[in-house]
Design a protein around this nucleic acid. Structure first.
Lengths: 120, 120
DNA sequence: TATTCATTTGAACATATATTCATATGTTCA
DNA sequence: TGAACATATGAATATATGTTCAAATGAATA
């Protein structure tokens, strides 16, 4: 029988041991938690948020996005590549222009929840 | 009557002008967009995500959190202060210990949506 | 095919942020 | 009151990340 590891904090052992075991049992695996953090990190930048809000309204080309956000086309393109790499937007080339749109409506849901939260 | 500003991109003017006006009309004010990004930024760190998952299960003290996450008490405390400052968790002192818990169930909803997304 | 337009990409830079370390604060109890 | 414990906090450090600049790629067209 393996020795029970001592919990060094709060001068308490068994009680905390119980709680910690229950917590560990329900905790998703570390990979999922990292993925989740990565997902939210994508939404955690105002440029990307603004891009997504534009795409809620219409499919637009890169230069229109730059115009709408009053940013350089390069900066916008960099952020679009992040959004695309994470499958939040998709793109379609039409002649010289590339048009971006939302990959799916999941994005709307997540941002909608966030809006609900900040408007209390 | 003010002159209509020229759109410099894609060699197109009126067509894009239309789209941009429609987009601007529906776009939330910049402050809200910044707040939204700030909110998601909080969730965009795996340490904070792990803390929140622990708090989904139980109200725990700082040293138990440090133990559960295998991190220093100081690092956990710093992250807790961020979560508290943004009203995602609340705290309660009991003797020498300080116990943290979720501020409200909105947090569960947001993280739940995120989990739905990453599990495709 | 040479030119122009739209976009992408890589490197450099500046800024933001997570953790560590040392120390301070707050609480209990002898 | 002094000692021990639990937590908080400030400064320093290392890393991550967003924007800019310059240059490359891709597509249309004269």
């Amino acid at each position: 029988m393996s020795p029970i590891e001592r919990v060094e904090c709060c001068e308490v052992t068994e009680l905390h041991e119980d709680v910690l075991q229950q917590i560990n049992a329900k905790m998703p695996d570390l990979d999922s938690l990292y993925d989740l953090a990565e997902l939210f990190k994508i939404f955690g930048d105002s440029t990307r948020i603004r891009i997504l809000f534009v795409l809620f309204e219409a499919e637009v080309c890169v230069c229109d996005l730059a115009e709408a956000l009053n940013m350089t086309q390069s900066a916008v393109s960099h952020q679009l590549s992040i959004l695309k790499r994470n499958k939040l937007v998709k793109s379609r080339r039409d002649g010289k222009s590339v048009f971006y749109s939302l990959a799916d409506d999941h994005v709307r849901t997540i941002i909608g929840q966030g809006m609900d939260h900040i408007s209390e």
